[in-house]
Simulated scan of single mutants.
Amino acid sequence: MLAPADIYCNVLECPNSGLAAATKGWANRRQDMTAFTIHSIDTAPAGSKDRLAAVKKGWGFIPKLQATLAESPVALKAYDDLFGLIAAEATLTPAEQQVVYQAINVFHGCEYCASGHTFLSRKAGVPEDVIQAIRTLQPITDARLQALRVFAETVAEQRGFAGDAAVDAFLAAGFSKAQVLEVVTIIATKVISNYTNHLTHTPLEDFMNDPALRWEDPKGRTPRRD
C-alpha cells in the first residue's frame, strides 16, 4: 500500500517513493496484466457503435485509443466530446491547444499521445523548434508559448493547486481567465487519454513508428512496445 506522502509526491522528484517503485515495475508486469480489447464497430458495446462510426468518418480510421475507450461508452463519449468541444469552441488557438496537449502528454509520459500529437502539432502550425522543445524537455524560446506550457505543467504537477502566482504569471503573458479554465479542460481530456493508454497499453498506430513522430520518454517511464 502506498504511504499518504507517496500520493502527493511527484514521481520524477521522489525516486524512492512507493509510487515510483510501482512505476518502475510497470514494464516487467505488463505480460501478466489484463488485456483490453481494441474494438471494431462490430465488436464494440452497443453504446459505442455509433460513436466509433462517427470517429471513423471524421478521422478516416478508428484510432486505437478510441477503439480501446469503446469498452466503456461513457469513457469514449466523454473523451470524444471534450476533444471536439475544445477544437470547435476554445479561444486558445489550434497551435496553443497543441502546446498544452503535448506538454501534458510529455508530463504524463504517454508515448502514444506524444507521438500522435507531434503529427497534430505540425498540422496545427506549431513551429518545429517548439515541438522539439516540448518533446525533449527543453525551454521554448517563444516567451508566450513557454508561459502557456509552464502553466499547464504546473497545474498538472500540483493537481490544480498551482497557486495565485502561477495564475498571475499566465495572465501577465497575455492569456485570459477563460483560458485558465480551457487549460484545465485540456488537462482533463489528457487525463482520460493518457491514463487509458497507461492502464491498457494501447499499441502505437503504424504511422507513429515514423522516427519523425515517435516519442520515447527521456525519463524512461514509458515501456517500449516493440
Rank of each mutant, 00 (worst) to 15 (best):
M1D: 15
I7D: 05
I7L: 09
V11H: 15
V11I: 15
W26G: 12
A27K: 09
R30V: 03
R30P: 02
A35S: 06
T37V: 02
T37Q: 04
H39I: 02
S48Q: 10
K49P: 06
R51P: 02
L52H: 11
A54R: 14
V55A: 04
G60Q: 02
K64V: 06
A70Q: 05
P73G: 13
K77E: 11
A78T: 15
A78D: 14
A87G: 13
A87N: 03
T91Y: 13
A95S: 14
Q102S: 09
A103K: 13
F107N: 01
H108M: 12
G109T: 14
C110E: 03
Y112K: 14
G116C: 11
G116F: 11
L120F: 15
P127G: 07
V130C: 04
Q132Y: 03
Q138F: 05
P139Q: 06
R144D: 12
F151Q: 12
E157R: 10
Q158K: 13
F161D: 04
G163W: 04
D164N: 08
D164Q: 13
D164R: 09
A165Y: 04
A165G: 09
A165I: 13
V167W: 09
S176D: 00
E182P: 03
T185R: 00
I186S: 06
I187Q: 03
A188W: 03
K190V: 02
I192W: 07
N194H: 05
N194E: 07
L199P: 09
T202L: 05
T202Q: 11
P203S: 07
M208I: 10
P211S: 00
R214W: 06
P218C: 05
R221I: 03
T222S: 14
R225V: 09
D226P: 12
